[in-house]
Every structure is written in C-alpha cells, then in structure tokens.
C-alpha cells in the first residue's frame, strides 16, 4: 500500500470511529427520557397552600423527616391508578416518612373531587401556575420525588408507582446519603 493510500485509509477509519462513537452515544439512550439533574442536590424551597385547610406549607419546615412528594392531576389517568399506592404507603409508613401530594395544572375543585377530601390519606398542596413544578424539573404527571431528612433529592420516579417500587424507594431513602452537590437556584 502506498503512503497516500495509508493516509486516506487512516483518515476514513478515524472519521468512521468518531461517527460510530457519536451514534452509539445517541442510540444508547431513550429519546423520550428527559434527563434529571437535581438528583443529589438540595430540593428547591417552596411555600404552597394546603388544599384542605389553606394553610401554607414550607419545605424548610418539613426537614428532619424524609419526604415523598407526589405530583398528580385529576385529568391524568395513570395518576388515578397510582393514587392508592401512595395513599397505602402514607397510611402504613406515615410515622417514618412525610407524604404530600402536589396538584399540577389543575383546578382546586377537580383536585378536591379527586383526592377524596375532606379525608385524604395524605395532604395535598396547590401549586399555583406550576411554579414549584418548574423549579423541581417536573416533566409531566405522575412524578414522585424522594427527599431525605436533610432536604436532598435522592430520587425521582417519572412513572406511576407500583407498591414494590414504592417500598424499594422508601427503603433507599432511609439509607445515609452520599456527598451533597451544590445548591441549585
């Protein structure tokens, strides 16, 4: 092989390798999956109104006990299927964990009808104009955030929770946290 041929061959091989690398990187992930960057970071603070009493609830006042935040809406079919799972966990593990629902893009009237007020299994919060949902990087409903006692987001589940996943995530939430990343504002 001539020197020129060798150079052309090497160049083509290099370009092909780079293309294959880029394609493999792209094909390796689900195009519908939205990345989540807040894992391991402090949960953004919020003050939301309780749906039942209208009293304000601040995240900073909830620290000290692990927190499960479940975003839902009455117009969301999968949320209806998931709601009993969260309600069951709230009844069973309410001593160890705090459970709050966050109403996403919905009216108070619809949310009240859906959540079974005035006797809900866990308190519901109204997120006016989804300000808090945007701060948390919510991409749709249902989505559930698992926040530890120090206020660090440990995990997010962007799908309806089944009992087994709920139990696994709650067990993981009791484990000690890794190093904390910088605060996101």
């Amino acid at each position: 092989m001539t020197r020129r041929g060798l150079w052309i061959g090497l160049s083509l091989a290099a370009v092909t390798a780079v293309l294959l690398f880029v394609l493999a990187k792209g094909f390796g992930r689900d195009p519908h999956e939205v990345p989540f960057q807040l894992r391991g970071k402090p949960a953004p603070d919020f003050t939301l109104k309780r749906l039942d009493t209208g009293a304000p609830v601040k995240l900073s006042e909830l620290k000290g006990k692990p927190l499960v935040l479940n975003f839902w809406a009455s117009w969301c079919g999968p949320c209806k299927a998931e709601h009993p799972v969260v309600a069951m966990a709230a009844r069973r593990f309410g001593q160890e964990f705090q459970f709050y629902g966050v109403v996403f893009e919905d009216t108070e009237e619809n949310a009240r009808a859906f959540a079974g007020l005035p006797d809900p299994a866990f308190p519901q919060l109204m997120d006016e104009r989804s300000r808090m949902a945007v701060d948390y990087g919510v991409t749709g409903v249902p989505e559930t955030y698992f926040i530890d006692a120090q206020g660090i987001i440990r995990e997010k589940v962007a799908a309806p929770l089944d009992p087994r996943t709920m139990m696994e995530k709650l067990a993981a939430l009791k484990q000690p946290a890794g190093p904390v990343s910088e605060v996101v504002r």
Partner: peptide, 30 residues
C-alpha cells in the same frame, strides 16, 4: 408545562437575570 416554563422565563427576565443564567436555570434541571 411549556406555559409554566415560559412563565418562569418571564419571571427570570423580569428579575434581571442574563440569558446565560436563564439557560443555566433550565440546564441545571434538565
């Protein structure tokens, strides 16, 4: 969700954040 995010962009622009900071707000989440 898009309307809510546009609200956030508007809020950040109104608070005097730069374009880079606003893009950073969204990339720090997604």
């Amino acid at each position: 969700a898009a309307r809510a995010q546009m609200d956030k962009v508007r809020e950040l622009v109104a608070s005097g954040r730069t374009d880079e900071e606003i893009r950073g707000y969204f990339t720090s989440r997604y």
